[in-house]
Every structure is written in C-alpha cells, then in structure tokens.
Simulated scan of single mutants.
Amino acid sequence: MAYVIIKALAPIFLIMLLGFYAGKAKMVDNKNVALLNVFVMDFALPAALFSATVQTPWQGIVQQWYLVVVLVLSMWITFAAIYFISTKLFNKSAQDSAVLTLTVALPNYAALGLPILGSVVGENSSTSLSVAISIACGSVLLTPFCLLILEREKARASGTAHGSSLSMLPILIWRSVTKPIVFGPLFGVILSAIGIKMPEMVLLAIKPLGLAATAAALFLTGLILSARKLKMNAVVTLSCITKLIIQPIIAWGIVILFGLHGSIAITSILMIALAAGFFGVVFGNRFGVQSPDAEATLLLTSILCIVTLPLFITLTAGI
C-alpha cells in the first residue's frame, strides 16, 4: 500500500520540484507569478472543474448523498475550527487564516483521490464518480468560504467596504460566485442537476485546459514555495495533525453517526484522510496573500500521508 501511495504522490512532488527548481534557478521570476496564476485560477482549473462536475450524473450524486454529507460536514467543521484557532488564538490575519484554513480543510481530491481509492475499493465507474463528487463538494461547497473572506478583506483594504460583514454578504457572495474558479464547477453542477448534457465537441475543446490544470497548479505551487523559507511552528504542527489525523477521525465519527458500512464508509473516510490540497496556496497568491504556514502544511502533509494513509486504510478495512 505504501508503494501505491508513493506512486500517487510521485507526479505531485516531481512537478512541484520542477516549479521549485525553475524559481530557484531564476528560470522563472518566482516573485512575479501573476500571469501563471491567472492561467491556473481563471482558465485551467475552472475548465477542469466544470468538465468534472458537468459529467457527474446527478442521479449518481443523489445516490451517494451520504458521501456528500460526510465530506461537507468534515470540511466545514475543520474550516470553522482552524479559522477560529488561527485568528483568535494565534492572532493571524483573516487573509492568512483563510488561506491556511482552506489548505487544511480541503483534501487533495484531484491528484490523490482516484489512485488511492482505486487501489483500496477497486477502479470502476463508482470509484470515479466518488472522486468527481468529492471534487464538486470541495469546489462548490467549501472554496467560496475562503473567497468570501479574501474578498471581504480586499474590500476593507481598498476602502470600498461599507457596513458590517453581514450587510456586505450579498455583494461578497456575488463576487465569489462570479469568479471562474467557483462559477465553473457550480455551473457544471447546475447543468447536471437539470439534465443538460454538454455537446461532446465542447468537452473536447476544453479538455486540453483541464489536462493542464493540475500540472500547472502544482508547478505554480512549487514556484511559490521557491520564494519562501519554510519554517516549523505551532500553527504548522497543529495544521498537519488536524489534516492527517483529526479530520479523518471527524469523518469517521460522522460515518458512525449515520451507521454507514462497507465501501461508502471507507470512501468517505479515506477521501478526507488525503493530504492537503494546493487550492489554498494558489488562492492566496491570486489575492496577493502569502501564508508560509499554509505552504509548510501543504508540503509536510504530502510527505507524512505516506505514513497516515496506510494507517487509516488498515483501520477502515473491517467497517
């Protein structure tokens, strides 16, 4: 099993390493990555997420509603807890905390979901559907929270914020929803729900963008990391423990609460037990927010999941 996990992680580390090397070698300006960020956040990732969600059968989502509930509750609880701890206990800024929180709360479904889940429950259409549902849950039901906070702080910094956060909420929601990274997957879910299938020609046309999305995001992440000095501290330690141990235990508790068994229970826990995703770091860079804690968490959880994932795979084998 460790071999399967390392095999799944190898492309991630290789592409991030290439981005890191390109930045350190000054092949790419690692302090000015705005153009690459626009490509990733406004074109490649939205195309990939739209393609994944629009091709996810609505009936399949309805049939796996338990998976949706477990994933969403696990991510929401983690998001709320880490954001509170980061802002109230460690006195981090709202922007920094939002980026860190999204990094911790949102697992790397896109890169690790299919190889890990396929090796445990088998590669079939149900497995692919579960991964697609996981990606949809993260992109539609979690990332907007991070965007809302970043948009709110951006408005306050520019002096365009008026009134309380609650009174600003409609405007912030509109700004977040109209961002391609949210609108893309949300539009895909809506089309799937009302039964509209995208023409094959359209899907083929955006396929190259989708294929480039993960690689470009990982390269960008490596490039961003090359401009920073990663440091261990209490926030990073807590974030890693939360992501790799506490969040999967939360998911397990929800599974027990609903009385789930078999592949749906295993899938729910293992999807949450994956390493941290790169969305938080990339989102932060798009808004000019640097979070060394999020970057360190991303890197360390990607390494440490080689140990924690086999543990949860073994523990969930009999449920």
Results as ranks from 00 to 15, higher is better:
78 T>G: 04
43 F>N: 01
212 A>W: 01
41 M>I: 10
142 L>R: 01
17 L>K: 05
58 W>L: 05
249 I>F: 09
108 N>A: 14
312 F>Q: 01
269 I>Y: 01
76 W>G: 04
122 G>A: 13
35 L>S: 15
19 G>W: 00
157 A>L: 10
195 G>D: 06
10 A>M: 14
111 A>D: 07
262 G>N: 14
57 P>I: 13
99 V>N: 05
68 V>P: 01
63 Q>V: 08
100 L>Q: 00
45 L>P: 01
286 R>T: 08
72 V>S: 07
312 F>P: 09
87 T>E: 10
147 L>D: 05
41 M>T: 09
257 L>H: 09
205 A>S: 15
186 L>T: 03
212 A>E: 02
189 V>K: 08
83 Y>A: 12
144 P>Y: 12
1 M>T: 11
21 Y>A: 15
148 L>E: 02
89 L>H: 08
239 S>V: 07
103 T>H: 02
230 L>C: 08
30 N>K: 11
85 I>K: 04
145 F>W: 13
82 I>Q: 05
315 L>P: 06
27 M>L: 15
229 K>T: 14
102 L>S: 07
3 Y>M: 14
273 A>N: 05
317 A>H: 14
47 A>Y: 03
302 S>K: 05
21 Y>E: 00
93 S>K: 08
55 Q>V: 06
278 F>L: 08
220 L>Q: 07
214 T>K: 02
257 L>E: 02
252 W>S: 11
55 Q>F: 05
273 A>P: 07
81 A>M: 11
15 I>M: 04
275 A>T: 09
242 T>I: 10
46 P>N: 11
317 A>V: 06
304 L>C: 10
279 F>S: 13
5 I>F: 06
239 S>M: 03
275 A>S: 15
62 V>R: 13
83 Y>T: 13
10 A>T: 14
77 I>C: 11
258 F>L: 15
162 H>E: 15
152 R>N: 14
194 I>N: 11
95 Q>K: 12
121 V>L: 14
219 F>W: 08
156 R>P: 00
196 I>E: 08
41 M>Y: 09
285 N>Q: 10
63 Q>T: 11
4 V>D: 15
141 L>D: 02
26 K>A: 13
36 L>Q: 10
227 A>M: 06
148 L>N: 03
254 I>C: 03
80 A>N: 08
144 P>E: 09
244 L>C: 09
52 A>V: 13
280 G>F: 10
227 A>S: 15
58 W>N: 03
176 S>D: 07
11 P>S: 01
312 F>D: 02
154 K>S: 14
237 T>P: 05
309 L>M: 12
42 D>L: 06
